[in-house]
Design a protein around this nucleic acid. Sequence first.
DNA 1: CAATCGTCCTGCGGGC
DNA 2: TGCCCGCAGGACGATT
Length: 243
Amino acid sequence: MPELPEVDTIRRELEKEIIGKKLKGVKVIKVRRRAKILMIDLANGSSLIFHLKLTGQLLFNSKPGKWSRAIFKFDDGTNLVFNDTRKFGWWKMVKDTSFIEKKFGPEPLDKNFTLKKFEEMLSQKGKSRIKPLLMDQTFIAGIGNIYSDEILFEAGISPLRRVESLKFEEMKKIFKAIKKILKKAIKNRGSSVEYYLDVYGRKGDYVRYHKVYHQKKCFRCGTKIEKIKLGGRSGHFCPKCQI
DNA sequence: CAATCGTCCTGCGGGC
DNA sequence: TGCCCGCAGGACGATT
């Protein structure tokens, strides 16, 4: 559930709170995000990295509860609590994060991720269906089930479409939708569907803008939203607005 | 190469 | 009321 906008919200808030603080005597110098991974860089060259998977939460200066799996204490008495109901998430201290940089596809909001680049990437993936492809972290980083649904609604493209069937204009629509939806979701501090909270324990506001994900009727035309299974995942789309 | 399935784990809601 | 079942969906490895 925490996808790019949620992890980025955590990153942005966390950097305000913990840069300059010390973790076991080592200064925090940077808080970064790559794909859905959050990285806290320390002055000794190591990084504390997290993946929240489905139900992970990182709460600043919070009290540990039933689902707390780790507590990181700073030298000034503040802390960072890692909660994770379903225990899919993980954290580790690593000496080098370059393997993370290489592992994933381009960052969708990076300036280097251009329409031309996207078109080139798509040309290698002819037979793939567009929704699972958008969720493939090695293809493009940070997009999960919620935002792939919302992006394809915005673009007016069915999640079932195969890449080879997309016209250039349709690729352009998807490209624009990726940038637009992710930026707007970041602005609204992400989507709190079930478990997601920001570092202050607040819900993200983007759910109110969801147009297909977990919706019953199409925001635009009122048609019943279709729910499908795609590669074991649920997908939501309007059969009338998304071709 | 693409797609599917099982796996990790827990909570919740539907159906009876 | 209670019990069982299926679903939620990120990522990975094995298999088709």
